[in-house]
Design a protein around this nucleic acid. Structure first.
Lengths: 208, 208
DNA sequence: GCCGGCTTACCCCGAAAGAGGTAACCCCGT
DNA sequence: ACGGGGTTACCTCTTTCGGGGTAAGCCGGC
């Protein structure tokens, strides 16, 4: 079994280096390269990669955003974030959007090979330096607790959980639908949720 | 306080009769008439009625459908179905879509007046002949119990409750998004729910 | 054999949702 | 006096939802 890899990085030299490194392994085949997120998305259907190695620091669309869109297209293969930064929010977002790992670029080449194999076999790959960040995230999995919600947001959230549409909520509260959408937007972001359905579930579990 | 009424009926003579009857009451003012559901919807904003008396048997859009659209527009006043038929499904649907009552046209004029006043004071108005139908509906408020769901529908429902989009569900099940939408559509209808948020709540309460 | 239910897939269509952005207003604390 | 958070309202934009329809294939019962 040889695995099909797609490299996504805006630095051609970096892609060159990684490609050379990986092709020393006879079970890893680099079937494509992309210089930005859009190229990666466009080539997905054609290349059918098993794993996408995704640089996070790219202009226009960064790695996490690209990951999000990749998953939205229904890609079920592995996606590995590969970056120099260790921004906590990026790590958390990457996990939320279904990344199979988050590696820092300062690692040894041999370790990268190892981690790729781990991921291809279904395991997670996290750079050791990020374990503390991850632990932090685990300590409060959905932690904002609701104390972060304003009164208005809690009110809107309850109505979401009652199955009301934004328009209906607006009518009940005497505000426009647009304003309700603002509250929904903010509340989803504060709670780290991805839609009103998750919000409803969250409300049932955390709100009286 | 005089209440503003809107009459919706496709028979001009019927409107005339009702209008004459109602205007004998000095607290009831007929501010508009509509010959079909669309006219009623178009005149809502301008007329700002307190109560809409809605015939159910109309061409194109029947009373229940009109009621649905009226509520979708955020109308919070009273809406009273007024019809010759006693179709059980219509009665149930009318209640689900927020009707304030369901009256049969064979009632006495004085009783209509009475019922209108009751509704305007916040009570429900149901023709006595319909109480058995209503009782039937109450016996199984959300009754289908889930036995009516197929395996596939239950599977989809669980994923809805997990916050997944139709596209994501399709990917997980290896079917197209379109097919998922069919399952969602059918399952919502079977359970008498009005959207995936209500479905999620229902699933949390009724499914393991 | 045929019929009915389930699953699948497609079509069209309008409405709802959610992500961006700007901006005004109020109120409270520094 | 200024800044900041909260609420409100508007804008554009893409995606998602949900209802309506048709239809094919499969399977099981009568």
């Amino acid at each position: 079994m040889t695995y099909r890899l797609l490299l996504v990085d805006d630095h051609p030299m970096m892609r060159r280096g990684i490609r050379q490194l990986l092709e020393l392994e006879d079970d890893l085949q680099v079937v494509g390269e992309a210089g930005n997120g859009q190229e990666a998305l466009d080539s997905l259907a054609e290349l059918q990669p098993d794993l996408i190695l995704l640089d996070n620091n790219m202009p226009q669309m960064n790695g996490v955003e690209t990951l999000k869109k990749i998953r939205e297209r229904g890609f079920t293969g592995k996606v590995l974030l590969f970056t120099v930064s260790d921004a906590e929010e990026d790590v958390r977002d990457a996990m939320r959007f279904g990344a199979d790992g988050y590696l820092l670029k300062d690692m040894e080449p041999e370790q990268l090979i190892d981690q790729l194999h781990r991921v291809l076999q279904g395991q997670m790959a996290i750079s050791p330096a990020l374990t503390s960040v991850l632990a932090q995230a685990l300590r409060s999995p959905q932690g904002p607790s609701q104390a972060d919600l304003t009164d208005r947001e809690r009110q809107v959230l309850k109505m979401i959980a009652a199955g009301l549409s934004n328009k209906m909520i607006g009518n009940k509260l005497g505000i426009t639908e647009g304003t309700v959408k603002v509250h929904v937007k903010n509340l989803l972001h504060k709670l780290g949720l991805r839609g009103r359905v998750e919000a409803a579930v969250w409300a049932l579990e955390h709100l009286r």
